[in-house]
Amino acid sequence: MLELRLLQGSLLKKVLEAIKDLVTDANFDCSATGFSLQAMDSSHVALVALLLRAEGFEHYRCDRNLSMGMNLNNMSKMLKCAGNDDIITIKADDGGDTVTFMFESPNQDKISDFEMKLMDIDSEHLGIPETEYEAIIRMPSQEFARICRDLSTIGDTVVISASKEGVKFSTKGDIGSANVVCRQNTSVDKPEDATVIEIQQPVSLTFALRYMNSFTKATPLSNTVTVSMSNELPVVVEYKIAEMGYIRFYLAPKIEE
């Protein structure tokens, strides 16, 4: 038996909007720790890892570990039927082949339940070791989204170069080239507007902008984004989900042959 009641139902709606274009089908894993997901895009270039900790739910009952295979497009269709202020409860029976999403309006005058068929999905779980990254950039999430969107109108790939001087985003295309440099800036009114660059050593990596742009669909989840890089490793683009956990996107670099 599984019953997870989330007061801020809009968080789950935003999570689905952030990942449904990157991943088609995925297993949601439920354990005493929380509600989590790890999945790759169809070409295995990008990976998304989601954690919503048990403590973040108003009520969290998970009698035993459960893995539920869901089509994210169908799940998104169902969650779109929930109001932004609704409380969302996820319910499933052990060994059942459906999951139920229950939506309660804030003043309890409307209660809906949507039952969705589960699917069997071969799990392709990767072990991701904890890594000390050589460059960690924290910046406003809207600024990062703006840069990715702007550069993708010029080129297909972005070179992200981080050094003590700042972080440079560069692209080249048929019509020309572009560079955007962000310097550390902590003299801001609100901490979420700061750009903070921590560098152990300079890092330069090349990535497909198509994926970066897809990751920025998580922007509504957090005011800030953290980009962690080490040479010759996938980048991690992390959006913290307030008091609940995180959504992390891993993207494999492009390497000159």
Partner: peptide
């Protein structure tokens, strides 16, 4: 053109 790597190059299946 640079070559796009995949996740299995970096992480092992568990």
């Amino acid at each position: 053109h640079p070559n796009q790597l995949t996740m299995s190059k970096f992480f092992d299946y568990t």
